[in-house]
């Protein structure tokens, strides 16, 4: 007999189990583990800017720029990079 399909362990109906929050949560985990110098709120604001402009690339890029500039104006200097060592650059594709 084939294995029956049952609701997942949460007991929730098997419909939409993943949410945009999954993206935020996964990214926050990476930040907390490997990039603690990047402020959590800055990351959340950048992702929110993308989420709110998913189908308008120009608007999304502008919104991300505003988030970064806003952070740099409001945050006291220096707010990151305690070692002064350069960060590793990732994929720029």
């Amino acid at each position: 007999m084939p294995e029956p399909l049952t609701p997942d362990a949460t007991g929730q109906p098997i419909l939409s189990t993943a949410r945009v929050e999954d993206v935020f949560a996964a990214t926050e985990e990476v930040r907390a583990a490997d990039f603690p110098n990047v402020p959590a709120q800055l990351l959340a604001d950048v992702l929110a800017a993308e989420r709110d402009n998913l189908d308008n690339r120009t608007a999304a890029a502008r919104a991300v720029g505003r988030v970064v500039d806003g952070y740099l104006i409001s945050a006291p200097m220096p707010t990151f990079g305690s070692t002064g060592e350069p960060a590793q650059e990732g994929d720029s594709a």
């Binding site: 985990e29 990039f35 970064v68 740099l72 650059e89």
Partner: peptide, 19 residues
């Protein structure tokens, strides 16, 4: 300061994409 912030942010997002 801005370059350093964006370098780290970009590296973080690249790692997050892979993850």
């Amino acid at each position: 300061r801005k370059v350093k912030l964006l370098v780290e942010l970009q590296a973080l997002l690249a790692a997050a994409v892979a993850e």
